[in-house]
């Protein structure tokens, strides 16, 4: 049985999933420096890698961002676009949709049988 947290790293790179997990755990918004500060304790990496990876997550529409001006100059504040549960649900949905598109009735019948058995 795969743990729920591990399921996220199945579809994202290790750093991408670490960043998303950190954003979910922080309960909302965070800057690159804050995310980097939390990640590097468990996962040694460069701040630049965190910035580039967050930019990629933004391009993939997994996080949103807004610019803020502070003492250190301009910075983005990132926020996940989905909760962990919504994200996991969308992964399952995509996987099932792909199976149905590829195998049609066979996939639907299989899910039907499996669902009845478990019921």
């Amino acid at each position: 049985m795969v743990k729920k947290a591990d399921a996220v790293s199945d579809v994202l790179s290790p750093l991408e999933s670490k960043i998303l997990e950190t954003l979910w755990e922080s309960g909302g918004e965070a800057k690159v420096r804050e995310i980097y500060g939390r990640i590097r304790k468990r996962h040694p990496c460069a701040q630049t890698s965190v910035a580039v990876t967050l930019d990629r997550l933004y391009a993939r529409k997994l996080v949103s961002r807004r610019i803020t001006t502070g003492r250190g100059g301009l910075a983005y504040i990132y926020r996940p676009l989905q909760s962990r549960e919504q994200f996991q649900k969308s992964i399952v949905q995509q996987a099932v949709d792909r199976l149905v598109a590829r195998f049609g009735d066979s996939a639907i019948n299989y899910f039907d049988e499996k669902y009845r058995k478990n019921k």
């Binding site: 250190g72 100059g73 301009l74 983005y76």
Partner: peptide, 27 residues
Amino acid sequence: GRPEAYSTGGLRPAIFITVGMSETLSE
């Protein structure tokens, strides 16, 4: 978000810095 800086020429030269650059480097 990618840390980058570059300049362009033409009639009015300009220097471009990304937000990623600003948040990654110190002053």
